[in-house]
Structures are given as C-alpha cells and as structure tokens.
Design a binder for these strands. Sequence first.
DNA 1: TGCATGTAATTAACGCGTTAACTACAACAA
DNA 2: TTGTTGTAGTTAACGCGTTAATTACATGCA
Lengths: 142, 142
Amino acid sequence: MLPENTRRSLPMALLHAREVVMARFRPMLAAHDVTEQQWRVLRVLSEAGPVEATELADRASVLPPSLTRIIKALEGRKFITRNKAEGDGRRVVLTIAPAGSALIDALSPERRVIYDDIEQRFGHEKLEQLLDLLETLIDGES
Amino acid sequence: MLPENTRRSLPMALLHAREVVMARFRPMLAAHDVTEQQWRVLRVLSEAGPVEATELADRASVLPPSLTRIIKALEGRKFITRNKAEGDGRRVVLTIAPAGSALIDALSPERRVIYDDIEQRFGHEKLEQLLDLLETLIDGES
DNA sequence: TGCATGTAATTAACGCGTTAACTACAACAA
DNA sequence: TTGTTGTAGTTAACGCGTTAATTACATGCA
C-alpha cells in the first residue's frame, strides 16, 4: 500500500525526524567547528578503537569518498591518525588521537543535557521502543 | 543518559534507517533522472496543490536555498510552473505541471511494489507503530 | 510620503552524498 | 614469474545541506 500522504511516508518521516533531532545538536557541533559527519567518525573511533576505513565508513554511515575528505580534515586538526595496515598496503587504519578524545570528553556534558531533554519530552519508553524498531528495520533491510 | 553505543544513538539510528530504506527507492528515481529531493518536492506539489515556496520547503523537508535550485531544475523540465503570488511580489507559487503528474503516475506501480516489500518484511503493525512514533517525535520537537 | 523594520526568496561558500572512474595493492592461477 | 581478477581507497563531477549575506518587496510608523 502506498502512503496516502507525505507525513506517513517512511523515508520522509525518517528524514524529518532526524532533522528535528539534529537541530538540537547542531549548535553544539558548530560551536566546536565540527561537522555532523566528522563527529560521527570521531565517535565511532572513540568507541571502537583503531579500525579500518571500510568498517569505519560503514559504522559511521558515511560513504567512502566522504570518509576520505573527513579523514583529511580530522587528521589536519590532529584529532585522528592515519596509518597503513601492516601486511596489506591497501588498507588504512584510523585511530583517535588525544585531541580527538579531548573533544569528545569536552562535548559530553552538553550532549547529555540535550539527549536527556529529548528523552524527557519524548518519553523514555517511547525512545527505547523507537530505537528497537529502527534497529529491527535496519537489520532487516541491510 | 547518553547512548552507550552508536547503534543506540537516535540521530545515527534515524540516519541509518533512512539510508537502508532509500537504498530501495534510489534506483527507481535514478532511472527516471530525478533526485530524491526533486521527487519529494514533486510529491508534495502533487498532494497539496499550488503552494508557496516557504510552505513547500517545509513540507518537503528541504531548505530554501536547496528549493531554489530544485525549482530551477524542475521548471526546466516542465515538471512544475512558477508564478509570483498576486498581491505580494515576494512570494512564489509553485504548481505541478502535466509532465510532473505524469512522472508521479508512471512511478506509482514501482513505488507500490517497493513499499509493499518493505512493509511485508518489516511487518504492517511495526511500520504503523514506527510511523506513529516518528510523528510524535517530530511534533514534539518542532 | 518617506524611512525603518520585517519577510520571502535568492545567492554565495564550503562540506557532504552519490555514482562512476581510477589507482594501488593483493590474491591466485597458468 | 606473469597476467588476471578482485579489493581498498581515492579522485572527479554534480547536486544537496547548511549558514550567512544579499536582494526585492511589504508593512508599519513618523
């Protein structure tokens, strides 16, 4: 069945929802001169440790060409380091650097405030339910 | 509470979910040489009738600068028409043109197949639940 | 009427999304 | 060893996302 209106269109609803949520985080990122995508990459590196570019791109939901640009920017600011994988000259291994960790730590309190506010307004239960549904959708389609 | 990992991060989950869903629709749009954004604009115009640019941008989840570019492209292909609002020389009124309606009609069957497949795999109940939650989130935050 | 303020749309600048093409390296078979 | 195939990453081209600045018009007040 086709969605009868754009509000009930899954792609549009996902887009719109992401938009209103990101609107809350964007000023924080802008204040620290980091783009959303750079932030996603940093967070994955912080969480997953040294990782190869392909896996990083996948986990951060960034396409390889974008990752190349993002790496360049983050490396230039000493937020990450880039090394060739030993044993395979094609692969690249990314690692978060102290400055990168410091940025994540610095933003942590503010993130918590924003996240808590969203959770409070939306409801803890609903948030968990939404995350579960999204996870199911993602796992089922990918 | 901060999300303990990126999979439970609301912005990332929304992004990733949208990505896997759009991956199903993208080939269809590409085959007809329409971008996602142009498609959203066309659908809103088709559904809402003649509408001013600001409202169109809002409903299609497109920013004004993007809309300007999109209008230019769609007008060039005779998918829409652009007129000044009578009584206010600033406002612009957009209307879908026959060729635009024809494109929407042409894609309708294929959209249905894709949408039905997603719905079947994910489950009708879950899809409705997800759309409800997204709608609630959007209305609460915007 | 004339000026200040506000609003709709556009333009500019820069980074990302997307696809396709390309380079560099690895794996494997003859 | 060499040629083929495959894979990781990068580059290129073009459109969109985002913010800030700008233009054009409307509104309201003196």
